[in-house]
């Protein structure tokens, strides 16, 4: 009996570990980078691609990083007459198979109240946050130009 209980517990732990690995793999963060800006800048913009390879919809709701007092999801909307406007995105839902692209001139991660602006060549860990789901963290290399 003892042996069986132990075995069950072990199996359960292994299954949990497997489930954890699957949960981590079904969201893929790629092409992440931060645009290098002058050290005097209070803000930075981050870009990435997020793909949902899982079978559940996910909702990206924000981001956090140690280097910034605040991080928000923004979109740059450009009107027909060439005016650009920043809008705050409260959440982005990715259905299974969906991909969200954050790129210059469009959706971007805006870091505000950045204490010390990292230089080109450095890398910053940023965690994307989701509704009812654990954070997804990744390294964002700082670059002067888009990759």
């Amino acid at each position: 009996m003892m042996y069986k209980a132990f075995f069950n517990a072990l199996t359960g732990a292994a299954l949990l570990a497997l489930a954890g690995a699957a949960a981590a793999d079904d969201l893929v963060l790629e092409d992440a980078w931060l645009r290098a800006v002058p050290p005097v800048s209070p803000t930075m913009a981050g870009y990435f691609t997020l793909r949902n390879d899982g079978d559940q919809a996910v909702e990206l709701i924000g981001a956090k990083t140690d280097i910034a007092g605040m991080a928000m999801l923004h979109d740059t909307e450009t009107t027909d007459d060439g005016q650009a406007r920043m809008v705050h995105l409260s959440g982005i839902t990715l259905e299974p198979g969906d991909e969200a692209t954050f790129a210059p001139g469009g959706k971007h991660l805006m870091l505000m109240k950045v204490d010390t602006i990292p230089e080109a060549g450095e890398s910053v860990e940023i965690c994307l946050t989701f509704r009812d789901r654990e954070d997804l963290c990744g390294d964002f290399p700082v670059r002067r130009e888009a990759p």
Partner: peptide, 12 residues
């Protein structure tokens, strides 16, 4: 200069 996306990209 407080604009994080388009302005530094254009400057670059």
């Amino acid at each position: 200069t407080h604009c994080p996306d388009i302005c530094p990209a254009t400057l670059a």
